[in-house]
Amino acid sequence: MKACLLPTGLHISGLKSALAGPFDLDAPGGEIICISGASGSGKSLFLRMIADLDPNEGSVVLNGRDRAAMPAHHWRASIPYVAAESGWWAATAADHVPPSGLAAAKALAQRLGVAATLFDSPVERLSTGERQRLALVRALVLDSPAVLLDEPTGPLDPASAQQVETVLAQRAAAGAVILMASHDPAQGERMKARRLIMSNRRLVDHA
């Protein structure tokens, strides 16, 4: 019902758990939202709740599709969550993307400063920064209407962070909602994002 009134974008209302919230947030398609706040303030909890990775209640609707009406894994495929510390489950980075998406993933990785040849080396040989960018690539090749990114540029040097910001800005320009947590207060400003602050497990507008 509500979904019909809110055609595109991400719409969150009454999202809460025993640990955080309630949260309300409306993000039209194409918006970048940057959440900053001290560590432990609840940024990751908020993103994980939207992805439905932690028990929570409340309504989340993306492009008119209600989370509650979708199987959990279909929901997460439409709004993937990339954790601050990337997890890997196979030998090489190439094994972590579907074969059909491998070419796109390599092209995207190159734009982020990661050589395509690294897709075939063992994951544990990659640097933290390379893994972080490849984890982002892994999510972006899904071409989802929204992404949840926890500290996507955390371990990156300023030049690589700049490349990530450029790619994310292009995704937003193509209509995706980018919801990211960042401890770098300047990042939101650089990306011309809507800036919110997580404080004490509640969201407040950037004053």
Binding site: R76, G87, W89
Partner: peptide, 22 residues
């Protein structure tokens, strides 16, 4: 032991069954 790799898969839309199959 594999919680971060399982959650990484779940976060990308994998079904729980396939994420925990190994």
């Amino acid at each position: 032991r594999e919680k971060s790799s399982i959650e990484a898969q779940l976060g990308l839309g994998a079904a729980f069954h396939s994420a925990t199959l190994p």
